[in-house]
Every structure is written in structure tokens, then in C-alpha cells.
Amino acid sequence: MESFQFVVNGLMLGGIYAIVGAGFALVYGVMNVLNVAHGSFIMIGAYLTYWTVTLLGVDPFVTLPASAVALFAFGYLVQRTVISRVLHASIFMTFILTFGLDMFLINAGLVAWGGSYRAVRPSYADDVLIMGGLTIPYVRLVVLVAVVAVIALLLLFMSKTRLGIAIKATALEREAAQLAGVDVKQIDAITFGLSAALAGVAGGLLAVVLPFGPFMGVPLTGKAFTVAVLGGLGSMTGALYGGFVLAFAEIGGVIALGGEWADGIAFIILLVVLVLRPRGLLGKEFFAEVKV
């Protein structure tokens, strides 16, 4: 029973981390930007789901496509107006800029919604599914299904659509892609939008399972970075794996060491990976790519 819970929770949290990390890795892969504000996009997604559910009374999972669209538009605009200006500057400039953006979004969240914790509770929040002696909270099961659907859609999009192929090509060899006719500046903005959309969906899913506030994104940015490094920074598929590795390590660590270790584990893993295996589990060595 306990091991079953462990697996369900690991898969659910892993899927969310995978989505968060994939978006973070895409932006790094395409435009060499470590987006410190990634966690705050997740936070905005959580509030979007919260308010849509609260004001319209719809099911939280129904809000996900809408917040994906809204965050795509937001990410696209942020890239076009702000991020695009520092793409040729050093990586520290991109740090400073996205750090500033993060501060702005957190404070905007505080002003708009206050600092108190909120939670999204669908009508079936306390229902459980009983399967052959195993009980699973219904909500967690739906989150799991949503996570699988999002990852499948993302993989399909990246491998089968024109736009997905353009994003991959730009990430692999920007110049070669451009000379083959890919409008790489447009792809930058679309990738940033896609990354924000993924963050928004992850935020909506997290809002259903955990209480959240305007600061919820801060540890999540660190986790996105850990996941992306685990997968080999810049590799989207690597980040998808990395998400599950981190989630199982965290949940296992909490069981072994206690709840207060939950957020520390990500950083221990990050440290260990950077020292022992800087290429990540299957990706490339990231600091070779860092332009200072």
C-alpha cells in the first residue's frame, strides 16, 4: 500500500516537474537564457486556475487549456519586448533581467492577491478510488492523467509539427536553421511562450494538490534548474526524465529523512550531479555553452 502511494505520488509530482523542467530547458536550449522567472509563470498559472474555478465554478482541469493560451501570449510578449534585448549579452545580463522580472511578478502577485495561502478544491476533492484494496485520491489520479496527456502532446508537437521541428532545429544549430529559412527570432518568442504555457499548466496542476501563494515559484525555479541539469541542460527530453528522477528522490528522501528535507533534496542532487556528472544523465555539458 505504502509503496503504491509512493509510486502514484512520484509519478504525479514527477510529471509536474517534468513539465516545469521541459519548459525551462527549451528556453535555455533555444536562446541560452536561464529564466529565473520560470517559477513565477507557474505561480501565475496557479492563480489563473484558482480564479477561474472560484469565479466561474468550472472544474480546475478545464481551466488548463485556457491558462496555457494566456501564458503563451504573456511569454511571447515578454520575450518580444524584454528578453529579446539581452539575447546577445552575457548570461549574467539574462540572469539580472529575469531575476528582475521574477521580483516584479512576485510583488504583483502580493499586491493583487495578498500573501495568504490558497487552495483549489474541486467538488470531488475528498473522493477516493478503491481498486483491489488500494485507495487512490481521485484528484491525484486526474492530475496523473493530465500530466501524461500534456507530456504526450508536447512530444507529439515537437516531433510531428512544423513549429516543433523549427524549435528543435533552432536549439540544435541556430545558424544552420536560420540558413534553411527558419525565422529564428520568431521561434525564440514562440519557445518562450510555449515554456510559459507549460509552466502555467504545471501551476494549475500544483494548485489542485498543494496550497500556494505568491512565493510558490521560488523553490520551483530551483527545481526546474535541477531537473534541466539532470537531463543535460538544454535537452527537453532529458528534462522530462529529470523531472521523474527528482520527484522520486524527493519523496524517497522525505520518507527517509523527514519532511523538512523536501526542498533541500533538489539542491543536494544538483550539487552531486554538477560535481560527478556535469553532462546530466544523458545530455551535454552545460557550462561549455555558457557565454560569459
Binding site: K168, A169, A177, G181, V182
Partner: peptide, 19 residues
């Protein structure tokens, strides 16, 4: 500078899609 993670035909497809 080929797109290393892609297959040969996928590389060529990039030209057909965006040229």
C-alpha cells in the same frame, strides 16, 4: 554543421519545410 540529434532525412526536411 548538421543538426546532430536528428536523422539525415529530418535534417533535409528542415530545408523543405522552411526554405
Amino acid at each position: 554543421k548538421p543538426l546532430r540529434d536528428l536523422s539525415v532525412i529530418e535534417n533535409v526536411m528542415v530545408g523543405a519545410l522552411f526554405g
